[in-house]
Nucleic acid binder design. Structure first.
Lengths: 141, 141
DNA sequence: ATGATACTTGACTATTTTAGTCGGATTTAT
DNA sequence: ATAAATCCGACTAAAATAGTCAAGTATCAT
């Protein structure tokens, strides 16, 4: 049960972006240097974040990215969803309910996995980018 | 963020075993048939469960496996630990605390990942095999 | 005894996922 | 013009996953 780098990087990069978000857009090059994430990889990630309208891009020289919503309104859930970092405990989501409804012998544990997914998703839905930035700046005092 | 089959199978197999645990040991062949898990793969999994003293083996004809503790005392945590299904949100656990203590720029999000790990592990520590068996038999009424 | 059943062990392998890299195109401030 | 950026798609090496396979050992039922 592990978090992939893509999901982790997406959050790291957005926290970084949120902290430097201001008059000028923030370039991926800067984020790359500060966070130690490959620039090429960041481009892939931000392409997805842009498509899900989490960030806005500014092209050309002196360009970069800007948050497209208030940090308070961007939840971990939205970020992970944007980069396809999903919580998967089981494959049989799409199967017919007959064959896997928690009653058949095969799915003795189906409810458990659902519970687990909900448990994790709760966490992701509660945390916003703002929370993360605040936690961090507070600790810095 | 996904659960691997190994972890899921381990839990499924143990719930199955717990339900049929009685006078006679339960063979992997039976579990394999009931749960639709490859016998060869189950053997690998039970080898680990045995080493962690979660199950006892009975060799030979009419042999099989038996729980080595009360179902109440076997937590999800123990099971996942036995089959190396760990909750990993980040790699830098072993790094020097200087370079990654939640203060450096790189690890703005370190605390978040720790929180997430704890959140998930809490879930695993609370659930016992007994809980799972009970939930299931109750639903069957 | 002996055959069938079942655990034990270790090596092997195909597939999938991950974590990038690479090349080139487009846009824009200076 | 040119340098700094985003954009886009294809490619790939390495790791993890989810098994399979082969050869053994132990034990029970008969």
């Amino acid at each position: 049960m592990k978090l992939t780098s893509k999901g982790r990087y997406a959050v790291m990069a957005l926290v970084d972006l949120a902290r430097f978000d201001g008059v000028n857009p923030v370039s991926l090059r800067d984020i790359s240097l500060r966070q130690g994430i490959s620039l090429d990889y960041l481009e892939q990630i931000f392409s997805k974040l842009r498509k899900k309208e989490i960030v806005l891009s500014v092209r050309g020289n002196q360009g970069g990215y800007v948050l497209n919503k208030k940090a308070k309104e961007i939840k971990l859930t939205n970020i992970f969803d944007a980069v396809d970092e999903k919580v998967k405990t089981v494959q049989c989501k799409k199967e017919s309910k007959k064959s896997c409804n928690g009653r058949s012998t095969k799915c003795l544990t189906h409810n458990l996995w659902d519970e687990l997914e909900n448990h994790i998703n709760d966490f992701f839905e509660k945390k916003s980018l703002e929370d993360l930035v605040k936690e961090n700046t507070e600790r810095r005092i």
